[in-house]
């Protein structure tokens, strides 16, 4: 983890008030593992004080070409990419960033998708199912690349409120066998929650063994965790929570997990953000 001032290379607007922010920070970019996150702060502001936790979407070379894994081609990652949606004060200010602006960035943070553990599970599975809700997609590109490089077949289930929330699809297309989309307003794919086609898929393939990686709203994660339990598939969830520090000291991001007394809570920033879904108490 490094605490750096990073320069904005690009702040590209995408559909539905989404932005892809590219930050020049070689030391941090080189240290990133799939599933980790960054804490981003707008320096010099005393009204918006806390850093914001953001999944690291991708790491790229300085000219933004090539994605995670580009070191194979003799290039080293130098740019951190963060995919965000404007939802509040902090992200509204981030949307105004232009190349050359500097941000305080603490990264990479958290455990990510525990490399050995999840890759072993993934190899045992006949397919890895990536389940994303809205901006939760941001946590899944790097693991998807990891899995694709290991030639592990994967399928993406991606849901949003409308088609404008389905960002980043072109990045996933070369990595996965198939993509199933769902929107609440029916503007693209299934009408309804993404967990409906997921349930159907699992129901029809009871005999197969999957590994599920999920990131999205709490309700989606809870239903996904329930499906994983019902059909007996291992499931990793990348949790989101408000964070004060991401250093493990404010204890603001603690969530209820299996365990008694002091062990009843774990910090999303330090013990997470990725957890086995059966470790979390979904209805505390």
């Amino acid at each position: 983890m490094y605490d750096e001032m990073a320069q904005v290379v690009e702040n590209r607007p995408l559909a539905g008030r989404h932005f892809l922010l590219s930050l020049y920070s070689p030391k941090q970019a080189r240290a990133v593992r799939p599933g980790q996150f960054a804490m981003i702060r707008l320096p010099g502001r005393s009204d918006v004080i806390l850093r914001r936790p953001m999944s690291i979407y991708d790491v790229r070379s300085r000219d933004l070409k090539g994605g995670y894994g580009l070191e194979r081609h003799g290039q080293r990652p130098a740019v951190l990419q963060v995919l965000y949606k404007v939802v509040g004060r902090g992200t509204r200010l981030m949307a105004e960033l232009t190349p050359g602006d500097r941000l305080a960035v603490l990264a990479p943070l958290g455990h990510g998708f525990f490399p050995e553990e999840y890759l072993a599970q993934a190899r045992d599975a006949s397919e890895v199912l990536l389940v994303a809700g809205g901006i939760g997609i941001a946590a899944l590109l790097m693991p998807a690349r990891d899995l694709a490089r290991q030639k592990i077949p994967q399928r993406l289930f991606f849901g949003g409120r409308s088609r404008h929330d389905l960002v980043g699809l072109s990045d996933f297309k070369p990595l996965v066998e198939a993509i199933t989309l769902a929107t609440e307003d029916g503007s693209r794919g299934y009408r309804g929650y993404v967990t409906a086609p997921l349930a159907q898929y699992l129901e029809q393939r009871c005999e197969r063994r999957f590994l599920i990686l999920a990131c999205g709203p709490m309700a989606m994660l809870q239903v996904t965790a329930g499906l994983a339990e019902r059909y007996n598939h291992p499931c990793l969830v990348s949790m989101e929570n408000r964070m004060g520090c991401a250093l493990g000291v404010c204890l603001g991001c603690s969530i209820r997990v299996q365990g008694e007394g002091h062990a009843a809570y774990e910090r999303v920033c330090t013990e997470g953000p990725v957890f086995w879904s059966n470790h979390i108490v979904w209805d505390p």
């Binding site: 004080i49 929570n241 408000r242 209820r256």
Partner: peptide
């Protein structure tokens, strides 16, 4: 002590609320 259920923090104008 285990502490309080989530959410425990919230950012306000030039400050933050916590109930850890």
């Amino acid at each position: 002590l285990p502490g309080n259920p989530a959410p425990r923090i919230y950012e306000t104008e030039a400050g933050m609320l916590n109930a850890i």
